[in-house]
């Protein structure tokens, strides 16, 4: 995992995102164990409470499971991954919309560009 201090995203959310992406792209499989809080904190030299906060959020979202013996494990359900995929894409599209607004590109024009690109993909 990597932390970007220049990013506007709080560190705990950066960890949450990276775990999600790894899980969605198959780098993490169900049952894989996440590094212990202390270990990851030492590796990234970040506050252990930040790692704990990220793991708690992942647990609340049903992406990891903590077992009584200790340890946090990936535990993804199918409907969960579908929602996550869509949330991830929505997030990126929202960034594009914000950027278009900042550049002063009207929404209708943005829709046109989007359709154009989608169609180009079909024609290949």
């Amino acid at each position: 995992m990597k932390i970007d201090l220049k990013s506007g995203v709080p560190i705990y959310l950066q960890i949450v995102e990276q775990v999600k992406v790894s899980a969605l792209f198959g780098r993490y499989r169900n049952g894989d164990r996440l590094p212990p809080v202390r270990e990851l904190a030492m590796e990234l030299r970040i506050n252990p409470n930040t790692v704990a906060k990220a793991y708690q959020l992942l647990k609340d979202e049903g992406i990891i499971d903590s077992r009584p013996g200790g340890g946090n494990f990936i535990s993804l359900q199918q409907d969960n991954t579908d929602t996550m995929r869509e949330a991830m894409l929505s997030g990126e599209l929202k960034n594009i919309i914000d950027k278009a607004d900042a550049l002063g590109v009207p929404r209708e024009r943005l829709t046109e560009i989007f359709h154009h690109l989608l169609n180009r993909g079909d024609n290949k």
């Binding site: 202390r38 904190a41 030492m42 030299r45 970040i46 506050n47 252990p48 409470n49």
Partner: peptide
């Protein structure tokens, strides 16, 4: 500095 910081991270636990 890095080693010192690791010690501090360790202490925050």
């Amino acid at each position: 500095r890095r080693e010192f910081m690791s010690g501090v991270v360790d202490a925050i636990h």
